[in-house]
Structure formats: C-alpha cells, structure tokens
Simulated assay, not measured.
Amino acid sequence: MAKKVLFALTSHDQLGDTGRKTGFYVPEVAHPAEVFRTAGYEIAYVSVRGGSAPQDGITGDDTVVSAFLDDQATADALASTPTPKELSAEDFDVIYFAGGHGTMWDFPDSAELTELAAGIYERGGVVAAVCHGPAGLVNLKLSDGSYLVDGKQVASFTDDEESAVGLTDVVPFLLQSKLEERGAKFTKAPNFTEHAVADTRLVTGQNPASAAKVAQLTVAALAG
C-alpha cells in the first residue's frame, strides 16, 4: 500500500500589523510534493482552520510551482482542506509542516494539529518541517510529556535569516530561539543555503532551499 504524506498548512494570512499578506509558502510544498510523488507517496493536505489555505511565495519563474498549481486535483485539494480534527493519525506515514510566515501565528497554538502530529510520530511515522514550518514543533509534546524536539538535532529559519528579511520585530517570537528553549540541538548553515537534518524520525530544514532535501531525508527515513 502506498505511503501517505500530509502537508500541514497555515490558515493565517496577515503579516503582523504590516498590512502585508502571508500564508503558506507554496514552493515549500510544491518541491517536496514532487519528491514524494516520485517516490510513490499519496499526498493530502490539512490546514489549521480548514477550507482554502492562503498562499505566499509564488514568483512565476518556478516551473515546479507552476506545474503544482496548474494541477486540477491539487488546486481542488488546496481549496477545501480539512481541519486536523477531521483526520486520523492512523491514516498517515508523514506529516510535513510547510513554512510561510503565517505559521508563526497559528501553528504553535493549534492543539489539534500538534496532537495529530504526535499521533503520527508515535505510531512510527515521520514528522517533517521546513523554514517556519517548525513553528508547529514548538509546543508539540509526546504522550510522556516531553517536547518532540528536546535533545534532537533541529533546523529551521534562523534568527539571523529573520533579521536579514527585516521581520525580527514583526513575528510573535524568534523560531530558532524558541526551539532552543524547548531543548533542540539547533543546527544551521549560512543564510538562505540548503540545510536539512534527520534525527530519530524528525526531519527539519532551514529555509525554502531546503524543502526538497527534507522530503528526500523523510523518504530515506521511512525506507530505512
């Protein structure tokens, strides 16, 4: 039976009080989705509030993103995502927390989403996340009360990268610092370069350039 990956998407579309829009970063879904599809995985989507998930990061010069958005089945799925409480951990082998700045506002406090992810992990699945997607990990506890990231190697959008894009004072917290508070062994590469790490079925990546690598490491983790 085909393995199944669930992409978790933000429902938050406001970039703080800047007046700018945000959402899930489409390249961080399109590129890993291509990796998973090539590996024979089925792909599904979930968002914090369900319905149509707000999109960000579409530039028009990325052929993988264009093909992803032009696919009718994908478009239909993204227009009507379920909420976490409508899904069961037993149905998925992977949950992949996609990034986009919106995640910083709604991923951490979505108890239903973190419970779903913990359930997938504790049945032997992989929890994956990239860029700001690890915002979904900051409050993710296992059934023994420990944080999933505690003592594990973890990557995410770094505090330096947040400063470089000028949003340090806009986001509700700094992701690297929060993960370190939770006990993560934080690892990073130079700003905006590819970096992903796998540790005990937790696979995380630093930035958009790392999204496909996270998917490759996830496929390898489940194959092994």
Score class of each variant (00 low, 15 high):
1 M>F: 11
6 L>V: 11
9 L>E: 05
10 T>A: 03
11 S>R: 12
11 S>G: 10
12 H>M: 02
12 H>V: 06
13 D>T: 04
19 G>L: 07
22 T>N: 01
24 F>M: 03
26 V>K: 13
26 V>T: 15
28 E>G: 11
29 V>H: 10
34 E>D: 08
35 V>P: 02
36 F>Y: 15
37 R>I: 11
37 R>P: 00
43 I>W: 10
46 V>L: 12
47 S>C: 09
51 G>M: 11
54 P>L: 07
55 Q>F: 04
55 Q>N: 01
58 I>H: 06
60 G>N: 05
61 D>W: 04
62 D>W: 09
64 V>E: 05
65 V>K: 11
70 D>M: 04
72 Q>L: 11
74 T>A: 07
78 L>P: 02
81 T>Q: 07
83 T>P: 02
87 L>H: 08
95 I>Q: 11
95 I>V: 14
98 A>H: 02
101 H>M: 05
101 H>W: 01
102 G>M: 00
103 T>Y: 01
103 T>C: 02
104 M>F: 00
110 S>T: 03
113 L>F: 03
114 T>K: 05
119 G>N: 06
119 G>A: 01
119 G>C: 04
120 I>M: 08
122 E>H: 10
124 G>V: 13
124 G>C: 07
125 G>W: 12
125 G>S: 12
126 V>N: 12
126 V>P: 02
127 V>S: 04
127 V>K: 11
127 V>H: 12
129 A>E: 13
130 V>C: 14
134 P>R: 14
135 A>G: 11
135 A>Q: 08
139 N>T: 15
144 D>L: 09
144 D>P: 01
148 L>C: 03
148 L>Y: 08
149 V>R: 10
150 D>F: 09
151 G>S: 10
151 G>T: 13
153 Q>H: 14
153 Q>T: 10
154 V>W: 03
154 V>P: 04
155 A>Y: 10
157 F>Y: 14
157 F>K: 04
163 S>A: 15
164 A>H: 10
167 L>D: 06
169 D>T: 15
169 D>V: 13
174 L>V: 09
174 L>A: 10
175 L>A: 13
175 L>G: 09
178 K>Y: 13
181 E>T: 15
183 G>Q: 08
184 A>K: 02
186 F>T: 09
186 F>W: 13
188 K>V: 11
190 P>F: 09
194 E>P: 00
194 E>G: 00
195 H>C: 02
196 A>S: 06
196 A>Q: 04
197 V>M: 02
198 A>S: 15
200 T>N: 14
200 T>W: 05
205 G>N: 03
205 G>E: 07
206 Q>C: 00
207 N>A: 01
208 P>H: 06
209 A>V: 05
213 K>I: 03
216 Q>G: 00
220 A>V: 03
220 A>L: 10
220 A>C: 08
221 A>H: 08
221 A>N: 10
224 G>V: 03
